[in-house]
Simulated scan of single mutants.
Amino acid sequence: MDAAEVPPALLECLDAVARLEREAPPASRAALAARLGLDEAAAARRLRELEARGLLRTERGGRLRLTAAAERIALRLVRRHRLLERFLTDQLRLPWARVHEEACRLTPVLADDVADALARLLGDPATCPHGNPIPAADGTLTAERGTPLDRLRAGQAGIILRIEREEPGLLRDLAALGLLPQTKVEIEEVAPLGGPLLVRVGSARYALGRDVAARILVREV
C-alpha cells in the first residue's frame, strides 16, 4: 500500500503511532489520543480503520504495532516531515523551535513527489534543523551514532549532533540556551545522585537536568 492511498487523518494517526514507538514506548490507544488531542473513542475509530487496511495490529496488553507496510509508509512520512522542517527553517526563516509543530500539520497532506521536489530545491540535505537524519527517497536511513550528553563525565566535551524527541517545549528551551546542532558543549561538573550537569556553551554556563541532557546526542571531542 502507498501513502497516497491512505487519507490524511489516518496518515496523521499512523505517524503518531510511529513517533510514540520511537520516543515513548509502548504506544497505546490512550497515549495516541493524548498525542493527537482526541478522545479515546475517536482514537479507537482511527485505529480500527488502520487495522482494516492492514497497517496496524494491537497486541496483548493494548500495545500498538505497525505492520511492515505501515513501517515503510512511516519512513516516508519521516522524510516529508524533516524536509518540511528544513524548508521552513532555511527558506522561510521560521524559528528553529517552531518548525517541528508546523511540519507536523503539513506532513500528512504533502505528496511524496512534492517532498522529492523539496529535497532537490534544498540540495538534498542530510539532516533536519534539529540534526536528525532525513531518509533518502529509496528508504535508506543513515545516521552518525552519538553519545547522550548525560553520559559524559566532568572535563569531557562534545559537538551536538541532534536533538531526540523534538518536543516543542524542549526545543524552545534549548534554542534559548543556544544548545543547537554543531554547538560545542563542555561538561564542567556532574552532580551526584542523578543531579544536574553544569555545562559550558561558549562563555555561558547552565545547569541541565539529566532527562534533558539524555535527549542531546553529541560527538565526543
Score class of each variant (00 low, 15 high):
Asp2Trp: 07
Ala4Ser: 15
Glu5Asn: 14
Glu5Thr: 13
Leu11Ala: 05
Ala16Tyr: 05
Ala16Pro: 07
Leu20Glu: 10
Glu21Tyr: 00
Ala24Tyr: 09
Ala27Lys: 01
Ala33Gly: 09
Gly37Val: 11
Ala44Ile: 02
Arg45Val: 14
Arg48Glu: 15
Leu50Gln: 00
Leu50Gly: 03
Leu55Cys: 09
Leu56Ile: 11
Leu64Gln: 08
Thr67Arg: 02
Ala70Phe: 07
Arg72Tyr: 01
Leu77Gln: 13
Arg79Gly: 05
Arg80Leu: 03
His81Gly: 07
Arg82Leu: 11
Phe87Thr: 04
Phe87Cys: 09
Thr89Phe: 15
Leu92Cys: 06
Leu94Gly: 05
Pro108Ile: 06
Ala117Cys: 08
Ala119Ser: 12
Arg120Thr: 14
Pro125His: 09
Ala126Gly: 11
Cys128Ser: 15
Asn132Cys: 12
Asn132Pro: 00
Ala137Gly: 04
Gly139Gln: 10
Leu141Ala: 04
Pro148Phe: 05
Pro148Ala: 02
Leu152Thr: 12
Ile160Met: 12
Leu161Ala: 06
Arg162Met: 11
Glu166Val: 04
Glu167Ile: 12
Gly169Pro: 00
Leu171Tyr: 08
Arg172Leu: 13
Asp173Pro: 00
Ala175Tyr: 03
Leu180Phe: 06
Val185Tyr: 04
Glu189Gln: 14
Val190Cys: 12
Val190Leu: 06
Ala191Glu: 15
Gly195Arg: 08
Leu198Lys: 14
Gly202Gln: 09
Ala204Ser: 11
Ala207Asp: 09
Val212Lys: 13
Ala213His: 06
Arg215Thr: 09
Arg219Thr: 06
Glu220Gln: 14
Glu220Met: 07
